[in-house]
Amino acid sequence: MTESISKVAERAGQFFMGQSPIHQAMLRLTKTLGEMQIPFAIAGAMAANAHGHRRTTADIDILIRGEDLEKFKQQYIGRGWVNKFEGSKNFRDAVCGVDIDALIVGGYPGDGLPKPVSFPEPERVSEVKEDGIPFVSLKTLLELKLASGMTASHRMQDMADVMNLIRANGLPKDFAENLEPYVAEKFGEMWQAAQISDEH
């Protein structure tokens, strides 16, 4: 059964006030991984929110080392956290009812094939934002989203996010010079697109 408009609006309201199950799950994750001294950083849509592009999402992306993910799972699967399915790297916060997708350090965004942009070590690229939750830096987020959208045609949301992050942060065209050259040209294209207003 589809949700009523008022229910969707209520959930969105909770989300933008930082009171949604997603926010609760991020806090639980930060506390648990912090206690285990496991470095991680939030990427994806929640990082886009942290960098000024406000949009709702249904899950959380985290940047983490493969061995650290295993360590966490050995200790916590079945204790408030469950595997998405047997053998999956992704898992679920069973308390908050939120899916968590693991981006493994050294892996590649988009089509998963080797490219100059890979998932970096979280402690190198994280910026602690609100409530002690570490988010990837804006530069890293843009590189990952551009590389993903460039190599996986079904991931058009990544390009939309790049465009909206450019707008939300008032980024200049020469911000491309800070980025991995592999994605710099595509950033330029997205920058041009971001200058076009929907108002006629």
Rank of each mutant, 00 (worst) to 15 (best):
N90R: 04
W81H: 10
L138A: 07
G188F: 03
E130W: 15
Y182E: 05
E189L: 08
M17K: 15
V183A: 07
A168V: 13
V125W: 03
L103Q: 12
F135C: 13
S88W: 06
L103S: 09
Q195E: 05
F175V: 06
L69P: 14
P114K: 02
S126N: 14
R167F: 02
R79K: 15
L141T: 03
A41C: 04
G66D: 09
S6L: 15
V183P: 01
F40S: 05
T30M: 15
A152T: 12
N90Y: 07
D68G: 14
G188E: 03
Q195V: 04
V105G: 03
L141I: 03
P21K: 01
Q192Y: 08
L144C: 08
E180W: 00
S197N: 09
V136E: 04
R55K: 10
P181W: 00
S6W: 11
F187C: 00
Q195G: 05
E10K: 07
I64V: 13
A48Y: 04
E10H: 07
Y108G: 01
D174H: 14
V183D: 05
L142V: 02
L103D: 14
E70D: 15
S20M: 07
K89W: 10
Q192R: 10
A184H: 02
G106A: 02
K173V: 09
E70P: 12
A25G: 12
G107M: 01
A160Q: 13
E67D: 12
R11H: 13
F91L: 05
D59M: 07
M159T: 11
T57G: 08
A102H: 08
G13M: 07
N169T: 12
F91A: 01
E130I: 13
M1V: 11
